[in-house]
Design a protein around this nucleic acid. Structure first.
Lengths: 218, 218
DNA sequence: TAGATTGTTAATCGATTAACAATC
DNA sequence: TAGATTGTTAATCGATTAACAATC
């Protein structure tokens, strides 16, 4: 199912690194650079240059020997590969502090992710505005998601409400969910769930920090 | 440097999976379970049971043949391995919507991460409260971080202020940073930076979604 | 004892990297 | 042409998994 244009399977790691390359490439484009070598890209992303070249050849040959990669072209190609070359609408549930922060988050917008619908269960919040969007009641979720053909949902509610929101999203046909609560949410296998819990990363780093400090302590 | 008690190097992947196991184990403990097999843990985490057993043996042998792992013991051991067996203080910069959401986030607290200092550059916000914490002026960051011996910093400010905050944190001796802005922040190699940008994950999933829909469209 | 499940070895698998011919 | 850098092969490296003896 997941294969390049030659029919070969693409390693998971490759797909994980593409967004990393894309971020740096967009930065370089903003800085007015026109070409970049795999060596330079390697420095900026902490990825081995040979690996970058190998990763890219899964999708075609985008570079010029002796020159490097044209940045504008490569951004365009990587965006197309990822499906990030057009706008994606997001539905957001939870009009609290977190929801407001997400709706106004620039990073999403930069990559074509636009929050176009916000829901809340609290009648006091329904009808208020966050940015340009008017908060709707959660009972309107299914209709709006269907009408707007939204496939990405964001869960930014209190923990106890998380599973219920996930179920509503699933029923409405949402395919990707971002869960901002610490709760383990269950979804069917057709849905991809991302937990944006910073705790996993913190714990991971903590391991190394503990070792380092252990060394100096003992 | 990163080695188990037998002096062997521990693969990065092992350390990445430990927080995953821990999350599920804590859940099981809450549900009142007393033991768990690697097979069951494998189901709950989507990790191969053999791998779970192998991962754990890097740190000792915690199970009982024929029985499984005692959950309370294993939670304790994994927390100790990760350094998550005591409280860690966090300094947070940015008292806006995002900052408030982070300061009140339950997931951090559950794992012993306590936000104990909040800073902002806006004089109108200085002196206000978020939860139990009184917002301090950003100029007090260095002193407070040093006094409280804080080693983890959270950046929740507008993008243009991110690098400045990172620099202040670095100067104050912070060792781990969570960057909630979409900006690429530069830190010295002694600092571990985590970008909690949901965009990378979204782009990653988008790849698979685009493929699947491509199939049904064509 | 019989059944279950760990800890561990050995085999497999796949990803990373070095090296270099091709070529801009 | 000389220098640079890609695309690609082949070698290395490391992680994953299957299998099973040990043992609760």
């Amino acid at each position: 199912m997941v294969a390049d244009e030659h029919g070969r399977r693409i390693p998971e790691g490759v797909i994980e690194r593409l967004p990393l390359y894309l971020g740096v490439l967009i930065q370089l484009r903003q800085d007015g650079q026109s070409t970049v070598s795999s060596a330079r890209l390697g420095e900026l992303t902490d990825v081995n240059p040979a690996q970058i070249r190998r990763d890219l050849t899964h999708f075609g040959s985008f570079g010029k020997r002796g020159v490097g990669y044209d940045i504008v072209t490569l951004v365009d190609r990587v965006q197309r590969i990822l499906g990030a070359d057009h706008v994606h609408r997001l539905a957001l549930v939870g009009a609290g502090n977190l929801g407001s922060a997400i709706a106004n988050y620039d990073g999403l917008r930069q990559h074509g992710f636009h929050v176009t619908a916000i829901f809340d269960a609290d009648p006091h919040k329904v009808g208020t505005r966050i940015g340009d969007i008017i908060v709707q009641h959660i009972d309107d979720l299914a209709r709006t998601v269907t009408d707007q053909n939204i496939r990405i949902g964001v869960i930014a509610v209190p923990p106890e409400a998380a599973q219920g929101v996930a179920d509503r999203f699933t029923a409405a046909g949402v395919r990707i969910m971002l869960n901002y609560t610490p709760v383990i949410v269950r979804v069917p296998p057709t849905v991809t769930l991302h937990n944006t819990d910073p705790v996993h990363e913190l714990l991971h780093t903590l391991y190394y920090l503990s070792r380092l400090e252990g060394v100096s302590r003992v």
